[in-house]
Amino acid sequence: MTTSTGAKSAAETTDPGNWTNRLRGRIEGLVPPGEALPDRQPIYVASWIYVFGVLTLSSLAVVILSGCVLAVGGVQWWHVSSLGHYVNSVHLWSVELFFGFMVIHLWGKFWMAAWRGKRAMTWVSGVLLFGISIGTSFTGFLSQTNFSAQWIAGEGKDGINSTGAGAFFNVLNPGQMLLWHVVLLPLVVVLIVLIHIIQVRRHGVVPPLDADLEG
């Protein structure tokens, strides 16, 4: 690492051999200028059907925040504390809303063929997110530390093991399932959410079929 001032530093900032410069250029080029946090949207976005993506994101924020509070109390906190029970319920119902809003978002985007206009990766990342979210909620149900979790694990083991995934994803191991639920899968979900949002901001919100501006 070098430090400098004046004209030399300006030259350094454009040096393509510097990985920091290359990374900065990549980050700056992720979305067109001004599109990262736009304050205006196309007129066709003024419809309730375009709200469900943001509602899904808002639910995810509540899911993560309530999950963080549950992590402080511990996995069995909700069995012995009314506050823990309340936070657990907030976590559960925000997940229910997350999936409900996400599925309505999916219906809306499917019926407007949202993969048009070079938006295939936006669609694909959304599909991936849907699948991984189901896996994340599955590990959540396995982490309830009650008979329901035991029953789900008992019913699910043969199906999971028949795929070979049981070698590193053992549904009968509540400790492993809890760590998948609170560390690994949330990281993947948040990463794909970021990719999905970048794709949306990069290509713009898809117009309705009868208002396709791209021809």
């Binding site: 196309p42 976005v45 003024a46 419809s47 309730w48 219906w107 809306g108």
Partner: peptide, 22 residues
Amino acid sequence: LFVLALIVPFPSGHDEETDQER
């Protein structure tokens, strides 16, 4: 909820413009 989202008018604010115009 899906059907309502399609048919209930969205409260419009200030004048919007199309993405292309912008």
